[in-house]
Simulated assay, not measured.
Amino acid sequence: MDVTEPVTLKTLAGELGLNVSTVSRVINAEPGTEAKWASPATIRRIQELAHERGYARNPHAASLRTSRSDLVGVIVPRLQDYVLATIYEGIDAAAEASGRVTVVANSLDDPARQRLRTESLLARRVDGLIFGDAHQDSPYLDELAARGVPLTLVSRRRAGHVSVTCDDIAGGRLAATHLVSTGRRRFAVIAGARYASTTLDRVGGFLAVLAEHGIGESEVDLHYTGFDAPAGQRAIADILGTDTRPEAVFAVNDFAAIGAIGALQKRGISVPDDIAVVGYNDTPIAQAVNLTTVRSPMIEMGRLGFDKLLALIDKEAVDSERLTPEFVVRSTA
């Protein structure tokens, strides 16, 4: 055989003395399912010759046969966000293990951009979508589901859609329980954005514990400034502008908490002696600055979000899942 000629299923079948259909089914079978089409000895012969001849499976041709592209689209607010980048690592690892490829796009947490980037991915024939930027007040996810698009959510949840999140209500409760146990009674919360379930659930769990200890929501200083370090700095400027200084600050994101700590220290306020600070997620930078925080299982969130999407693509029944958080005590509270 002229080695310069392209290696095809037909040429492999000719050398092996087998039907092209048999060779095709073995090579294009999902891993572990090859035995449906041939004996172990025949499968080994096919695979060894394909490897020896440098045969490469044509994913485009395979997608035409199966109506699947083996591509999964992932929409995140920003890949520079460590939390979503870590969740994406879990998604991508699960995709690689299943022989799929992920394509990621940034929405910048803007619903119009989310729609634009999603439609672009759908035009490229992705088999399904994973969203890390779900908004509570946006109908677009409902529209996609009505169109029959398989999708799952990670990090944030939304009613009516399969999601994998941290149990953020439980996480908020852990933060409040710890702070109350240290004797603190005056609180401020850097709450993130109102459209995100992470805000609603973490703040809701936090306030529920305070209420159980006789501290009403009207007595808590809530600031919806965002999830990053500048948001934490802005919140501290607002908090210290009031007549009553809190004894503790709970931020629903580590980066907002770190921004808050920097702003407090700049004003000569000691953490935790004057004001304690608790964050959320337990990112590496939280460990570096000894931030007391709530740990969320980010990698596992991504893996499970991908696995549930595959189940939906295969028309299986799937339930949402909330993963257990863990409270990590360090030096800031």
Score class of each variant (00 low, 15 high):
Tyr82Pro: 02
Pro31Arg: 11
Thr292Ile: 01
Ser163Asp: 01
Val318Asp: 11
Arg158Gln: 14
Ile91Phe: 01
Phe206Asp: 06
Asn106Cys: 03
Leu153Val: 11
Ala146His: 10
Arg202Gln: 08
Glu30Leu: 12
Asp228Pro: 05
Gln136Met: 13
Thr86Phe: 00
Glu15Gly: 14
Ser24Ile: 00
Arg194Asp: 12
Phe187Trp: 01
Asn19Val: 00
Arg245Pro: 00
Val318Arg: 02
Ala276Pro: 03
Ile27Ala: 13
Asp92Ala: 06
Glu247Ile: 08
Thr165Lys: 11
Thr33Gly: 00
Leu49Ile: 02
Pro150Thr: 07
Ala257Pro: 05
Ala208His: 09
Asp274Ser: 12
Ala145Thr: 13
Thr86Tyr: 03
Gly17Met: 08
Arg330His: 09
Val164Glu: 05
Ser39Pro: 09
Ile190Asn: 04
His51Leu: 06
Leu49Asp: 04
Leu79Arg: 02
His178Pro: 04
Asp110Ala: 11
Val329Glu: 15
Gly305Ala: 05
Gly279Asp: 12
Phe306Met: 11
Asp81Leu: 05
Arg157Ala: 11
Met301Pro: 01
Asp137Trp: 01
Gly216Asn: 09
Ile190Thr: 03
Leu79Cys: 01
Glu321Pro: 00
Ala333Tyr: 03
Thr198Cys: 05
Leu304Phe: 01
Met1Thr: 07
Leu64Met: 15
Gly128Trp: 00
Arg303Thr: 06
Ala317Thr: 14
